[in-house]
Design a protein around this nucleic acid. Structure first.
Lengths: 242, 242
DNA sequence: ACAAAAGTGTTCAACGTACACCCATGC
DNA sequence: GCATGGGTGTACGTTGAACACTTTTGT
């Protein structure tokens, strides 16, 4: 499927002298995380390509020739979840020669975090739905490797930045927040220390509301102060502000 | 230069159903850092492509159709510096539609760290040489943006991991090490605290040698214990051990 | 009354930071 | 003997970790 794999120049340019005329496909693959029932979930569909038919696959597509990479990711997320302006970040590019059975395809992986209840799945072909990240063993292509990289990325990043909040409802209890951290990081935490740490950031707004329909003393509900957070000085990472 | 930009399917596959037949170029760009005269340096050549002719450019090349991405980077580094087995890491992929004047080219940027004295520059076309990172203002394509991302990456990473040592001679004084950190991070540090911190890692081997030809009391020379470092438990980051 | 989780402070250890003096060498 | 940087220790503040009891609500 690689056509005319001929390179027309060998002069070691500092940059390509022209676009070569062999075909390399560029795709993006989206690891869209959600959180529900105290479990980290990822949105997958079934592959219909041999030899991976019926294996689970990330949501991906070819990047169109006149489309920015981020735009391709936004398009996929929008088409599948109905959501615009989703939090997303490039994680890593995978391009082993034989990673794709139909030819050379290099894929740029992105991680997105969404609230699983504030979206509605669309284009439900190939059994699009949410899967427990912990249960996933095998996947099509090198998608397990990509998922692992994104999960690992999430674990690191959420220890430094309040990313995880995007997985929760806009109003949440500190219990919700702690369970989110405990489940994604895979470790129990001390409730007092956890609360202390979050309050000391000064970015939680007490809504005045309480949980309801809980069979115990209801906890306070908070919102995250995105406005204040936006004004705080942040370190840069790979040229991007957080 | 984009040929036949036609996509043959619109069925939202979880993966590309086949490699599309429009041409997208894939390149790698290498930010090869060195350190000399207390300055961080990067290896650049002049571009000979309009409209960037005579602008400085990173070392890059098209990824060959049967070549892994890492292999392309190794090839470029080897061809330019003569070095094998250089430390390198993928940083980020850049792919704006109009980033390249000759068509759609997506580039995967890598950062490499080498000892500027333990290599010999090869293929010296287009004024290949080392430049002070601090002095670089304008570059060809989006290469300034790539350089900034890699510099920022280096600043972060070297605060967590002893990467920077790869920029020094195999035997170095603590003064060398501190100057390296101060220059790359752009801040003065306390000598006693700096030494304490490095010694507490337990990864410096006293060679028994001393500096010579210095107009003051000579400092001890150390080696880094790569063997012991290799055995220490490390955290994972994007699926890669450090 | 009981079950379940909310809410709350203190102590200790580890770590980072600030800071000043004597020592060895070259000139 | 003087200039230059090498080499060292202590005190303090901040941060993260460990740890238990009272309060509020639903059943």
């Amino acid at each position: 499927m690689v056509k005319n794999p001929v390179i027309h120049n060998n002069h070691f340019p500092g940059e390509p002298a022209h676009v070569p005329d062999f075909t390399v496909g560029i795709s993006v693959d989206c690891v869209i995380f959600g959180f529900e029932d105290n479990k980290l979930k990822v949105l997958l569909i079934k592959s219909d390509m041999q030899p991976y038919k019926d294996h689970w696959s990330l949501l991906g597509d070819i990047v169109k020739p006149d489309e920015d990479i981020d735009a391709a990711v936004s398009r996929i997320v929008k088409d599948r979840t109905g959501l615009n302006d989703v939090y997303m970040e490039q994680v890593r590019t995978f391009g082993e020669v034989n990673r794709h059975p139909k030819g050379r395809v290099i894929t740029i992986s992105y991680c997105s975090l969404i609230n699983i209840r504030h979206n509605e799945l669309k284009i439900l072909d190939n059994e699009l739905h949410w899967h427990d990240v912990q249960e996933i063993k095998e996947m099509a292509f090198d998608h397990k490797q990509i998922l692992d990289a994104c999960y690992n990325w999430l674990q690191y990043r959420m220890q430094e930045h309040p990313l995880g909040l995007r997985l929760l409802e806009t109003e949440f209890s500190l219990r919700d927040l702690q369970l989110l951290y405990e489940n994604i990081l895979g470790e129990k935490m001390d409730r007092r220390n956890f609360r202390k740490k979050f309050f000391s950031m000064g970015l939680l707004i007490d809504t005045g509301e309480l949980e309801n329909n809980v069979p115990h003393r209801p906890g306070k509900l908070y919102k995250f102060d995105y406005e204040k957070y936006g004004k705080t000085k942040k370190k840069k990472w790979l040229g991007i502000d957080f």
